Amino acid sequence: MKWFEIGLVVLTFASGIIWLLDRLFFAKARRERAGLLDDGRDPVVVDYAKAFFPILAVVLVLRSFVAEPFRIPSSSMMPTLLVGDFILVNKFAYGLRLPINNRKVVGIGLPERGDVVVFRPPAYPDQDWIKRVVGLPGDHIAYRDNVLYVNGEASAYQTIGQYVGKGRGEEMTGATLLSENLGGDGRHEVLEIESPLFASHGAGEWTVPEGEYFVMGDNRDRSDDSRFWGTLPESQLRGKAFLVWMNFDGAAGGVDFGRIGTRL
């Protein structure tokens, strides 16, 4: 995704500069020569620049500052997000950031507990990952015996039943499906594998530093998250996921129309 972003920025600025230079220095002389030495037509490169610059500029602005599409490649956020989901991410929820270097230029808001966020993990700065925020700056987080504790309070769980997966998520069939409450009225579903092998998976205690967040996947035993690589710096945030706009999983038969429009 980062290379696509770099390519989009380079093409946008290159086409814009070509168009601007032609307008300032070459277009007038070309019009004056029309009918004498040539037909006055724009060179091919200028013609392409004029055609593509407005489109590239609109795509760059929308993708960088409004909403960006992402595809879910793994099962770490099941059952909230399925393999093959295509999601939209609000790029201004946590402030306006420059493309490529992700530097915040305008502060707007901060993540709240329970938000599903897209970010670039410190160990893999060229990749985009997605998890749920469970710990805010200053929070004390503990995870033991498949129970999440926030500032000493255990999250409230309700067992829904056994999960039935499909397509590339079929491996999670038989896992326990639960509803989790991180506080307030917000509830979301999580998956757990009832096995002694996973009883201490990811167990530990952490204090979240200022300016950082503790993130976890909803598929608790299939997620590489803050339990294993530490807290997430605010500077690595890319945006807040808010909508599934399509799902395509060839192993499940193709497009799942029932997923379209699912809000997160």
Results as ranks from 00 to 15, higher is better:
residue 219 N to Y: 14
residue 178 L to K: 13
residue 184 G to I: 09
residue 144 R to Y: 10
residue 178 L to Y: 08
residue 155 S to C: 15
residue 144 R to L: 07
residue 205 E to Y: 04
residue 197 L to P: 02
residue 219 N to E: 14
residue 167 G to F: 02
residue 180 E to K: 09
residue 210 E to R: 15
residue 145 D to T: 11
residue 180 E to R: 08
residue 206 W to R: 09
residue 163 Y to D: 03
residue 188 H to F: 12
residue 202 G to V: 01
residue 168 R to D: 15
residue 159 T to Q: 09
residue 163 Y to Q: 04
residue 202 G to L: 02
residue 197 L to K: 00
residue 146 N to M: 05
residue 149 Y to V: 02
residue 138 G to F: 03
residue 175 A to T: 09
residue 140 H to Q: 13
residue 142 A to R: 15
residue 139 D to V: 03
residue 194 E to V: 14
residue 194 E to R: 15
residue 149 Y to G: 00
residue 139 D to K: 07
residue 205 E to R: 12
residue 139 D to W: 03
residue 174 G to I: 07
residue 138 G to E: 00
residue 178 L to F: 05
residue 150 V to F: 01
residue 185 D to A: 10
residue 196 P to V: 05
residue 172 M to T: 06
residue 210 E to H: 13
residue 220 R to T: 06
residue 198 F to Y: 15
residue 165 G to S: 14
residue 177 L to K: 02
residue 213 Y to H: 05
residue 215 V to M: 14
residue 184 G to E: 07
residue 197 L to G: 01
residue 159 T to E: 15
residue 146 N to K: 13
residue 159 T to Y: 04
residue 147 V to K: 11
residue 149 Y to S: 01
residue 172 M to C: 03
residue 155 S to A: 15
residue 178 L to T: 05
residue 170 E to C: 08
residue 196 P to W: 05
residue 181 N to L: 03
residue 155 S to M: 13
residue 219 N to F: 14
residue 219 N to I: 14
residue 153 E to A: 06
residue 163 Y to F: 15
residue 221 D to A: 06
residue 216 M to D: 00
residue 222 R to Y: 10
residue 155 S to D: 11
residue 216 M to L: 01
residue 189 E to N: 14
residue 156 A to G: 02
residue 212 E to I: 10
residue 171 E to D: 15
residue 198 F to V: 13
residue 143 Y to M: 01
residue 167 G to L: 04
residue 187 R to W: 10
residue 217 G to T: 10
residue 202 G to C: 00
residue 150 V to C: 00
residue 206 W to P: 07
residue 146 N to R: 11
residue 154 A to F: 00
residue 202 G to Y: 04
residue 188 H to T: 08
residue 144 R to K: 14
residue 185 D to G: 13
residue 210 E to V: 10
residue 148 L to A: 03
residue 197 L to W: 05
residue 219 N to R: 11
residue 162 Q to Y: 12
residue 145 D to C: 09
residue 205 E to T: 12
residue 181 N to W: 03
residue 164 V to N: 05
residue 184 G to Q: 10
residue 188 H to N: 09
residue 168 R to F: 13
residue 178 L to G: 00
residue 202 G to N: 02
residue 156 A to K: 12
residue 198 F to A: 14
residue 145 D to H: 15
residue 150 V to K: 03
residue 162 Q to P: 07
residue 147 V to H: 10
residue 189 E to L: 12
residue 155 S to L: 09
residue 142 A to V: 06
residue 218 D to N: 14
residue 149 Y to T: 02
residue 143 Y to Q: 00
residue 208 V to H: 09
residue 180 E to V: 04
residue 151 N to Q: 01
residue 143 Y to P: 00
residue 148 L to S: 02
residue 147 V to E: 12
residue 160 I to W: 12
residue 158 Q to W: 01
residue 200 S to G: 06
residue 154 A to G: 01
residue 156 A to V: 13
residue 146 N to A: 07
residue 143 Y to N: 00
residue 173 T to F: 08
residue 209 P to A: 07
residue 216 M to Y: 00
residue 140 H to Y: 12
residue 190 V to E: 00
residue 154 A to P: 06
residue 191 L to K: 07
residue 169 G to W: 08
residue 158 Q to V: 06
residue 195 S to Q: 00
